[in-house]
Design a protein around this nucleic acid. Structure first.
Lengths: 347, 347
DNA sequence: TTAAATAGCGGGAACGTTATCGGGAAAGCT
DNA sequence: AGCTTTCCCGATAACGTTCCCGCTATTTAA
């Protein structure tokens, strides 16, 4: 029923030009005079012309949309990354389509399979927790679809990747704990198989070694990434022969879970047990005591990933780049060994 | 450089059929024998055929993607709504493209203007705070693009809308406060111009009237929706001649802001001042005391909106529907007048 | 038995755009 | 003056698919 969408032909007829000329007027500077170009452009706005992307895509074999596949969007980190992606994508005229895997490898696989090669120009992906088989990614890369990984990356695939500086962030976190007076520092970690957890654990271990502090196996727990996992891990740590006096959590959600358990057990956070997280989720400034954490450049992770992908799309043989974006320490009350000066100020 | 994508023609050549027959075999049951249909289908998987959506869209004048425009995606409510949208969209073969307005009417306007009529099949929108001019929406609806509003809806436009039950939710919130023993109930509200705040305020007022409790103008503050707004509003309320003993916040973010201010002022939450929110943001169960709230069916708002939009897309003259989805009360500690039994249990 | 209906398939135009080629006019060079 | 180059533009074929029309062979109705 659509009232006849106006096309390039209408402009051509109106101006007594050929469609080729009008088409050129829209994009090329050469092979068309300045005068006619202006005439075309003004006529375009006058008629309210909108290009038909299907037609353009058909002849150019492109779609102007890029897909982003990730575990979830209902948490601070991922939704912020998406916002970053969306900002640069939108400014360059690309549509962002996203697929939520819910951390299910099956869903990841089926999405990739259904992903028609002709329906997207490129793919941004954060893998699921169990990245056992990355063959499906290799396939679509071989087929010519540009792929960029972010956050959780597949280590055995040669393509562009964007991550935060997990190693140095962890190192800085532990350094902060040490300089705050903690000496028995535990680490509640994530899924062992992921590069992200390995790097953070390496940073933790190396920092301990640097300060000549003990590295104890029993002080490193490995489970999931959820708040509940954090709650449980604390109970594990309290079973240790030597009970730690500080916890470095692999992310804020686990740190918050840990804090909830500590509160339940009436262990004073900061004073008796220091806690530091990783992410800077907004919640960490809302809960009390405030959670000290390593802020992650989520927005930049998104925007840089998207920029890289667009480079891959424009030049077909673009050398893969790996970006490592630095985080920054944000000190709040959860790593304060002395009783809160805040509560005194408040009155 | 793409290795020649295989098309319908390749299948036709391979089976000695015409393209028309192959095309029909993929969708129509009539005008093609069962036998050839099966041959086509098996050959399709054998050759790994993927349909070219640009070509299909070009002839059918459709795009298979729907746009969702909303203020932000970095909070619980919106990201959950999007997840709901994405789930039904994905299952029906639609791509979800989204545009973030950051609550800027200018951005909203420019997005709508740039939105090529041929690049989307439909639009889901949650308006910005200042919905003064809804003419741009009317225009694209007149042009034939199906539009469904959710959450923040434009009241003067006749099209499908999906909202949570703001009125009854507010009514229930106040009812809960009253039955918990509070009598001087204030309301920190949102932007006056939005239907969502008007409905919640009406529910608040009507509930007070039902219980024959005073409705005082000074007990109703109107500002933004952010946590900071909540923090400020509390200070306003404390300036009142008669200081209230409970607060019904228009959403959880403001409720949390209010709680932060109360904590700073050493006013005991629950005991001295009850607080109830609206949304059931995950944070409300993390902070202490836990925030009592009206849980909003965010996922359903998303999925139902998308279903409605798809109905509009399939049948061009679909009568607009307005869906009102019920919320549910979740009681936590912020509306507990007696000292927390929780902390006793914990030891 | 004959006319009409039907089932199954092919041919070709169309969708809106870009890209390749070619051609004519104007301008520059020797 | 004659040649080459440059500038501007038009015609036409693609891109992959659907849809309308028409054809043939078979089945059904009278």
């Amino acid at each position: 029923m659509h009232n006849h969408c106006i096309t390039i032909k209408d402009i051509a007829r109106e101006l007594n030009l050929s469609v080729s000329t009008v088409s050129r007027a829209f994009r090329d500077a050469y092979d068309v005079s300045q005068e006619t170009k202006e005439k075309v452009l003004t006529m375009a706005v006058q008629l309210n012309y909108k290009p038909n992307f299907n037609a353009i895509g058909l002849v150019k074999n492109q779609t102007n949309n890029i897909a982003v596949m990730l575990p979830s969007i209902t948490n601070y980190y991922f939704s912020t990354v998406i916002t970053g992606i969306q900002e640069v994508g939108y400014s360059k005229g690309y549509n962002i389509i996203f697929y939520v895997t819910n951390d299910s490898p099956d869903r990841e696989l089926s999405i990739i399979k259904n992903l028609s090669l002709t329906s997207i120009d490129g793919l941004l992906v954060c893998t699921t927790l169990t990245s056992d088989h990355s063959d499906h990614f290799k396939k679509i890369i071989e087929n010519g679809t540009p792929v960029v990984f972010f956050d959780r990356v597949a280590t055995d695939i040669k393509t562009s990747k964007v991550v935060q500086d997990d190693y140095n962030g962890a190192f800085e976190a532990v350094t902060h704990l040490v300089s705050s007076g903690y000496e028995k520092i535990a680490h509640i970690s994530g899924r062992k198989s992921l590069a992200i957890t390995q790097k953070r654990t390496r940073g933790y271990v190396d920092a301990l070694k640097k300060f000549k502090l003990p590295v104890r196996e029993e002080w490193i727990t490995q489970s999931g990434f959820s708040q509940e996992d954090g709650e449980k891990d604390v109970y594990e740590l309290l079973k240790c022969k030597e009970i730690p006096d500080a916890i470095f959590a692999v992310n804020d959600r686990k740190a918050i879970g840990a804090m909830l358990s500590l509160k339940k057990l009436n262990i004073k956070i900061g004073e008796e047990m220091g806690v530091i997280g990783f992410t800077n989720d907004p919640v960490s400034s809302i809960i009390s005591p405030g959670l000290t954490t390593i802020a992650v450049p989520a927005l930049e992770v998104g925007s840089k990933s998207c920029e890289l992908l667009l480079k891959h799309i424009s030049k077909k043989h673009f050398e893969p780049e790996e970006l490592i974006l630095p985080g920054r320490l944000i000190v709040r009350e959860s790593t304060l060994k002395t009783p809160h000066p805040i509560s005194m100020l408040a009155s």
